[in-house]
Design a protein around this nucleic acid. Sequence first.
DNA 1: TAGATTGTTAATCGATTAACAATC
DNA 2: TAGATTGTTAATCGATTAACAATC
Lengths: 239, 239
Amino acid sequence: MAKRREAEPAGQESVPRAPEGEHRKLPRPVLDRLAAYYQIATHAGESGQDAIASATLAEFFGVDSAVVRKDMAAVGISGRPKVGYPIPQILSKLDTVLGLSGRNDAILIGCGSLGSAIARYGGFNRFGLRIVAVFDTDAQKVGRSIGHHTVLPMEKCRRTIEVFRPKIAIVAVPANAAVDIVQWLVGRGMKAIWNFAPIHLKVPSGISLRNEDLGLGLAKLIHDVNLKMRAGEEARLSG
Amino acid sequence: MAKRREAEPAGQESVPRAPEGEHRKLPRPVLDRLAAYYQIATHAGESGQDAIASATLAEFFGVDSAVVRKDMAAVGISGRPKVGYPIPQILSKLDTVLGLSGRNDAILIGCGSLGSAIARYGGFNRFGLRIVAVFDTDAQKVGRSIGHHTVLPMEKCRRTIEVFRPKIAIVAVPANAAVDIVQWLVGRGMKAIWNFAPIHLKVPSGISLRNEDLGLGLAKLIHDVNLKMRAGEEARLSG
DNA sequence: TAGATTGTTAATCGATTAACAATC
DNA sequence: TAGATTGTTAATCGATTAACAATC
């Protein structure tokens, strides 16, 4: 029953064999759904349920229930016929799979409106995120307090990285500054970049990067709403 | 050369036939990539290039160049051998496809730190977004000015919707308030919901919804960095 | 012309869907 | 027991990759 194929995508050739157990590489669509199940199960748990059926999760995410059952099997979450999947097991297993159980230290670069919002937002604690320091090049912003943090000058960043060794850098600087900053951060040993600048960045393989471009999200939403409105009009004309 | 199949996903049965030309339904992975090409082409154009090769776009996005050429063909962008795809054509075509050429009016609900950041951020103008009004239930926030806006009380929201008829509502309220607000907004005729609350919402088919859950994005990034660090360690041990 | 890059067809691969036996 | 729901196999579907002819 072992998986037949373990071909790695470009940039991963150095991995000699697939990791086993909970840490095997999951297809991206699976990972997307698992993250959503985590959120849905959390809210279901808060409202008093102690189990949730594959059909329920499927309806929320807009897929077939067999997909959900396969996803669950892929990470070793087992359900019970007539009952569903126990929410505590979903949460603890996905905690492990998504890596949320450990502490994930981060620094934040850029304290404009979006950077400040991130610094103040407490909702990421749930995912183990701890922002150890926030930086800005703007002398006017240095010294200000944002949430629990005081904005530090960029010159202090190198030393902070050496002391705290954070894995994650949250980049919320203007697009034209992002390329250089990210290159510098990677050079200082940063392992993950969470990029909010509206520019598509690249990093060496072995470094994790997430381009969280909200403008692109908006573009997709606008595309979708235009498509639906057009479809609605056509249905009205022909119906 | 017409497409053979036009099956619609669940919830779209009312559409009698597929729209033609630039507005046909694109597979989600294609749309994701097109939005990224738009961003990459924009920056390439700003740095003085006037064309870009499929291989360049492919390298940025981490796919094969044939994928890029197919995507371009799918939306009718034509390139020239030895040159690549002209950037003006990429931008104007994707403007149309993504629906960014029109004006997209929106209201913003919730002026916490994230809502305020969105209200202040000018980067969405590029996508035709115009926030016509911002609202909050908190009497303490009403009357404050955020960017160019003054926070209005929720009671004024109904009337604003009737007058401006915005298509899009940006929801940046706490998770426990989001469900009711969104249901109300849909009832008032809103066509698209851009949800920043950390909860997976559902809307009737025919309404567009984008759950922009940043915590989920973080979870995926953490998963990825853990996987890579683990892979790196294994390579070191066995290598 | 020679060479680089597009455009497109055919082959492969992987993910989704359908179906149903196993199980509580 | 009967019925609902999981778990899993086989079939279908769609997207990616490989290959190469067309073209500037």
